[in-house]
């Protein structure tokens, strides 16, 4: 799920950026630092949308760096248990398949793939129904439900299922 929230961060700025463009520098550095990161609490920071407030800077002794407390608005993406997501399959193997929804990697175990779909090895490993009408392979788009998440410092890993109503392949590049 996406959220638009306000976060705060202490930015350290090198003295060479002091000057007329200090604010701009600060913002661009903030974007560089923050966008794409992941925190367990908020998920992935997708984009900084605005700056709420920049506090007074404190000069660090010794280095000359200045620390600014910056409050900024940003869009974050955090997967939740039970959430339905659409994702692109990135890899298929006999244990299941991996899919990505933006920065989030989701694994769908073969136990969580409908029983009528079977793994087919080969050049393009895939899961196919017995009649061959549905096929999950690399680059397929699937709709899945997240049943578990594990949050590391730098990534969020999810376990998903397509063994439920209205879940499964929504767009197959092979058939298009």
């Amino acid at each position: 799920m996406f959220f638009h929230i306000v976060l705060e961060r202490n930015m350290q700025l090198h003295p060479r950026y002091f000057g007329r463009n200090l604010r701009d520098n600060l913002v661009s550095k903030l974007m560089k630092d923050v966008e794409g990161t992941c925190s367990g609490r908020h998920g992935f920071v997708v984009a900084v949308t605005g700056i709420e407030n920049i506090g007074k800077g404190i000069i660090r002794d010794g280095t000359g760096f200045v620390t600014f407390p910056v409050k900024y608005q940003c869009v974050v993406f955090r997967p939740f248990k039970g959430e339905i997501l659409e994702a692109v399959v990135t890899m298929v193997n006999k244990m299941g398949f991996f899919a990505e929804a933006g920065p989030v990697q989701i694994f769908v175990s073969n136990h969580l793939i409908p029983d009528d779909m079977e793994f087919q090895t080969g050049d393009m490993p895939n899961y196919t129904t017995s009649d061959g009408s549905v096929k999950i392979q690399k680059d397929s788009e699937v709709r899945l439900k997240i049943i578990g998440t594990r949050v590391d410092a730098t990534e969020i890993f999810c376990i998903g299922t397509i063994k439920d109503d209205f879940l499964g392949v929504i767009n197959d590049p092979a058939t298009v």
Binding site: S109, I147, G148, I159
Partner: peptide
Amino acid sequence: EPGNHVKVVSGAQEGATGMVVK
């Protein structure tokens, strides 16, 4: 339940952690 994050505390796989899928 599927999705629980668990740790195996005894048996052959002792010490492993993972998420329940089934």
